[in-house]
């Protein structure tokens, strides 16, 4: 009579007495339980994957990952706002005075120490290409358009929380932690910049 197998008793909470009769050791049923539940767990994880990855940028967004800009019409002292990955990009043709102002700064004393040369291409030091996204909380700084407030250092000024950037796009005053980001770019020709 004791050989009659009553299924699953030990898995029931509050039924410890049943297992005592069996003695110790892993039973086949324990193995099946663990295997089945593990398999269901792996299956659930696989099912969750598409629910999550659908949120990352889709193919049409990824297709916008590089953009070419003609800069031949930008005179020294002027700048343009363009778009890369749906974010504003500032392309500015610096005047000799701007370059002078940027070079005269003691780099070691900056919050994010970088020289103008670090932030431009060799031989193209007058072309400053940065994202037009304040590194504080993402607003678009003023200063690229004619007549806009360029801030205390003649570069950019973010109206949201008052960050001042200099002519090299470096943070000089205000809450922003780093300089304006210089995206990956190259000169496809003398007059065309390829961003991304």
């Amino acid at each position: 009579m004791a050989t009659v197998e009553q299924p699953s008793q030990p898995t029931m909470p509050g039924e410890p007495q049943a297992d005592a009769a069996h003695g110790a050791g892993v039973r086949r049923r324990d193995f099946i339980n663990i295997a089945a539940v593990s398999f269901a767990g792996v299956g659930a994880a696989v099912a969750v994957a598409p629910l999550l990855i659908q949120m990352s940028p889709d193919a049409s967004v990824r297709a916008l990952s590089s953009t070419e800009v003609d800069v031949s019409k930008i005179q020294p002292g002027q700048g343009i706002k363009t778009v890369w990955r749906k974010q504003p990009v500032f392309i500015r043709n610096l005047t000799p005075q701007d370059i002078q102002a940027a070079a005269s700064v003691e780099v070691g004393g900056l919050r994010d120490p970088q020289t103008l040369a670090d932030r431009t291409k060799p031989g193209k030091q007058n072309w400053l290409v940065t994202l037009g996204v304040c590194t504080h909380l993402g607003c678009v700084p003023l200063g690229i358009g004619e007549g806009e407030n360029k801030g205390e250092y003649g570069g950019y000024f973010c109206p949201c929380h008052g960050s001042h950037y200099d002519t090299a796009g470096r943070i000089r005053k205000g809450p922003a932690p780093t300089n304006l980001v210089v995206p990956e770019y190259e000169f496809a020709s003398d007059t065309v910049v390829r961003i991304g």
Binding site: P50, I53, S56, D58, A59, S60
Partner: peptide
């Protein structure tokens, strides 16, 4: 677009 562009959109 869901079928072609969205990641795993086809299976969803």
């Amino acid at each position: 677009r869901i079928m072609r562009d969205v990641n795993a959109g086809w299976v969803l």
